[in-house]
Design a binder for these strands. Structure first.
Length: 675
DNA sequence: GTTAGTTCTGTTTTT
DNA sequence: CAGAACTAAC
């Protein structure tokens, strides 16, 4: 049997994790400890020892992780090519359940999913009719609070709501309105997907039983990133059987700001008595010195399970710490160093990564690399779905798929212009409200509205008819790409875009995006067994459309943020901008647990490196407009000095910072006295 | 309904 | 400084 051979090649800890199939299991998988290998093999072993594939559920956070795991599992189960286990993200797992059962909760089945930008614009609209709207509250912050309260619902474990500030109170006041709005729009936001699935389990034991009976073995990846709702969901699903295996690394929890609850992993043993804990501490990725640096840093965190990576590999070169005069010098040094190493060690560009705290830092490195003609690609940044034209077209599809979605309809009633300005819209929405109609129905019956001009009424009715017509066309579920294309032509969207963007280049780009969007619908249709408009919209909302990204990532040196780098590895890593106020980010220092999370971020960065690690910081840096001196990060001192080799840049730190400060001081005084 | 001018604010990001 | 987001004026 092949699988036993494979298992025999594992280290003792790994083996233990793979062979433990019944009862709760916590795998603390350090960076580079062969985690993916263990969980795929564990899955294979489960199936091999007789568990039906459909009884195994593996939940991940990202589509990427799910895809990767699926690929590796199916490669391992080369024999019978029948259906594998269910491997999907939290959100799509819940969505699949809701699609079948949501009517139990009094929702309609044809709901649509609102992404963050939908949520924001919905909130903006709501904000306008709220009294105490303090403009210093940003919609984003309000949404964050709302989402937060959705995610850490009070429960015995965290009922203490210590800090309540004005935004909290405000968000609290808005919360019910927001929920109500979503409900009437027949829409769910991302949080709802999880929350409602949980509600379903809580309120309908028969449904819960059904799924408990089906999923007998559950695995959760990146468990340190789970929030309260996810925790409850999983715990319920695992039920009495508790064949629950969670895999994670408390030291790599870097999404606390998004609601991840480190307590979930720290308290797992308490919550599931009899848990077997397996620590995977042997690292197969990095040279010794890199691990010494990583351990040295992370050791300073108090809230953790405790774990130290070790390796059989040699120590390798020291960690280079470079102090640059300024950010330009930093970028140039990195570029030069890459050229040199590439040549010396015969590496390829793909072997290098530059890791920074915030995406905006990518710029200086892009410039330096471009100057030296080194190929690179930037990971992250604004997604293509943020583009207005994509959102417009998506809104068309949404209202077609979900006739109750007033909000999406609102976005496009006058896009492109069809003579339905604000006053007409107000009349229409009033009419809808007074007669408890959806906005679309109101448009259809615009003729009955007193005070609405004939022209506007006609336009509204024509528009409603258009939506109705395409509703029927799309209901056929075939040739949807073509139908969408017809739609864009019928509404003259092309002209709209050309009028909007004056430069031909910009307009061209937008038009290409539109074409791309139509293509992605056609592609979805071809790729899917039973395609539907709803299905497409779900894919749109729930997947990152990785193909797009991968095409964009044309190889070369990788420029990436700490957050996105998690899970990746590179032979040579440069961690840049390791300065106070940047790496422990200025704002993080005040949040509780903030500093420790920043430290974990640094730890994640360090452990990406396989062979060589470089850390850089600047003596001074352009901040907004001013050139300000900066200090090395406090985390640097936590790296054991013996693994470090310091390199000083040319002493360009102005020999007398004091003199400069003095000069500034005097010029300020001059200003004050009005000289 | 658009356009130009003004103010403000600068993390991390998946679903 | 640069980009977004909001306002005021055409």
């Amino acid at each position: 049997m092949d699988i036993y051979n494979e298992i025999a090649r594992l280290n003792p800890r790994q083996k233990e994790a793979v062979l433990h199939t019944e009862g709760p299991l916590l795998i603390l998988a350090g960076a580079g400890s062969g985690k993916t290998r263990v969980i795929t093999m564990r899955t294979a072993y489960l199936l091999h020892s007789g568990a039906p594939a459909s009884s195994v559920l593996a939940v991940t956070f990202t589509n990427k992780a799910a895809r990767e795991m699926k690929g590796r599992v199916s490669a391992m189960l080369k024999g019978p090519k029948n259906k594998g286990p269910v491997i999907s993200t939290f959100h799509s797992t819940c969505l699949n359940i809701l699609r079948k059962e949501i009517e139990r909760l009094g929702y309609r089945k044809d709901f649509t999913i609102y992404d963050t930008s939908d949520q924001l614009s919905l909130l903006r609209g709501l904000l306008n009719d709220v009294k105490f709207y303090d403009k210093s509250f940003k919609v984003e912050n309000v949404l964050e609070r709302i989402s937060r309260s959705k995610n850490d619902m009070p429960s015995p474990k965290n009922s203490v709501r210590s800090k309540e500030d004005d935004i909290d109170i405000f968000a609290g006041a808005l919360y019910p309105k927001y929920l109500e709005a979503l409900k009437t729009l027949n829409a769910l936001d991302f949080d709802d997907l999880l929350l409602l699935a949980l509600k379903l389990f809580r309120e309908h034991p028969d449904v819960l039983d059904k799924y408990r009976d089906r999923f007998r073995y559950i695995m959760v990846d990146e468990y340190q990133d789970t929030n309260r709702v996810q925790y409850d969901f999983i715990r319920l699903l695992a039920g009495e059987r508790k064949n629950l295996c969670v895999v994670g690394d408390d030291d790599q929890s870097i999404y606390g700001w998004r609601g991840a609850n480190l307590g979930n992993i720290l308290d797992f043993e308490k919550d599931f008595p009899g848990t077997a804990v397996v620590r995977l501490e042997q690292n197969y990725r990095s040279f010794g010195n890199i691990l010494l640096a990583a351990n040295g840093v992370i050791r300073n965190n108090r809230k953790r399970m405790g774990k130290a990576l070790w390796t059989e590999k040699e120590n390798g070169p020291e960690v280079k710490v470079f102090k640059a005069a300024d950010s330009e010098a930093e970028a140039k040094w990195v570029a030069d160093r890459i050229m040199q190493l590439k040549y010396e060690k015969k590496l390829s560009y793909e072997d290098f990564a530059v890791i920074y705290r915030a995406n905006l830092f990518s710029r200086q490195f892009e410039e330096a690399l471009r100057r030296e003609r080194l190929p690179y690609s930037v990971v992250g940044g604004t997604s293509y779905f943020e583009h207005r034209e994509i959102k417009d077209l998506a809104s068309y599809l949404k209202i077609i798929a979900n006739p109750l979605d007033d909000h999406s309809l609102l976005r496009i009633t006058n896009t492109p212009k069809r003579g339905l300005g604000p006053s007409a819209i107000i009349r229409l929405s009033d009419f809808a409200r007074d007669n408890s109609l959806s906005l679309l129905e109101a448009l259809d019956r615009a003729g009955e509205i007193t005070g609405l001009g004939e022209k506007a009424a006609g336009s509204a009715q024509r528009f409603a008819a258009l939506i109705g017509k395409y509703g029927e066309l799309f209901a056929g579920n075939k040739g949807m790409g073509g139908i969408l294309k017809d739609l864009t032509e019928e509404i003259n969207y092309r002209d709209h875009i050309c009028a909007l963007y004056k430069t031909p280049g910009a307009a061209m780009k937008r038009l290409e995006n539109i074409e791309g969007f139509v293509e992605s619908l056609s592609y979805y249709e071809k790729d899917n067994e039973s395609p539907s408009l709803h299905g497409f919209l779900e894919t749109l909302a729930l997947t990152d459309m990785e193909k797009e990204k991968e095409e964009k990532n044309g190889g070369g040196i990788t420029l990436i943020s700490f957050h996105s780098s998690k899970g990746l590895e590179f032979p040579v890593v440069f961690i840049v901008g390791v300065e106070e106020d940047i790496l422990p980010h200025k704002k993080s220092v005040y949040q509780d647990g903030g500093l420790e999370e920043e430290r974990r971020l640094f730890y994640v960065g360090i452990t990406r490196a396989m062979k060589e690690l470089h850390i850089t910081y600047c003596g001074r840096r352009l901040k907004y407009k001013k050139d300000e001196p900066c200090n090395p990060s406090r985390f640097l001192e936590e790296i054991p000095e013996e693994v470090i080799k310091r390199i000083e840049g040319i002493e360009a730190t102005s020999p007398d910072e004091e003199e400069e400060a003095a000069r500034e001081f005097f010029s300020n005084i001059k200003k004050i006295i009005g000289a």
